[in-house]
Write a protein that binds this DNA or RNA. Structure first.
Lengths: 119, 119
DNA sequence: ATGCTATATCGACATTCGTCAATGTGGGAG
DNA sequence: CTCCCACATTGACGAATGTCGATATAGCAT
């Protein structure tokens, strides 16, 4: 490769002559962030999170199995992933476990990728 | 399972007696959304996207291989994933391909998960 | 045409992931 | 204690994923 310039939208660049880019994200930081996004990278977990976040209060885990259309162990597994990603919190009351969305956690993920104007 | 109520934060609920939840996200919609998040669920792609989004203009693909520390085919593969997820766009000029972040696409992903207040 | 360069695709590999049935755990009721 | 229920864990399976080397494609220059 040659040395590229930053190709501004109107700038016609026939060759590649810019300076090297310094990565905006360290690998270690990227690994942690990616785990957060990975928690939302599955349809079952997305619907699970949407179910929990759409409720004003807390949601009993027992009420999540049927609307998801997956087995109880699968739902339990996905809830654990969401919990360990910090996207939801939970509390045991008696035999039941209640879940709720952690406020601001979703926005924090995208905020780490730069200013909101940047797609 | 019994019929649970919505457990409000202060509400003491010993039993589970709420009505069934209707899923806020359809499975088909969740699949498409999950693909978007999956594009950001890998450290290499996250750093790739951050590199592209942090630049004011466009970025030549050739300048992304070295800071990422992966082989050229691997970088090409990840760029394709980001492109197909709609997170970046690209344009070929001569031998080089220039990339830039699609404005608003990242915010659109989280916006589909409910009001911004919902974490 | 040939040669060089930037990027994309292919093939193969180890690893991770989503899912389920079966089983384990732990709390409440009797 | 025993029984039942909600939830978690285990083990296994097929499927998807990230990575690379090798190869193919496409554009420019000569």
């Amino acid at each position: 490769m040659n040395i590229p310039t930053n190709g501004q939208p109107g700038e016609v660049v026939d060759a590649c002559r810019a300076a090297e880019l310094t990565s905006a994200l360290q690998e270690s930081e990227a690994v942690q962030l990616a785990q957060g996004f990975a928690a939302l990278a599955d349809p079952a977990r997305l619907r699970l999170f949407a179910l929990i976040a759409s409720q004003p209060g807390q949601v009993c885990a027992c009420s999540l199995v049927e609307p998801l259309g997956r087995s109880q162990p699968t739902v339990s597994h996905h809830l654990k992933v969401l919990y360990e990603a910090g996207l939801v919190d939970r509390q045991r009351r008696g035999s039941w476990v209640w879940y709720w969305a952690v406020p601001g956690r979703l926005k924090a993920l995208t905020a780490a990728l730069g200013p909101p104007s940047k797609g």
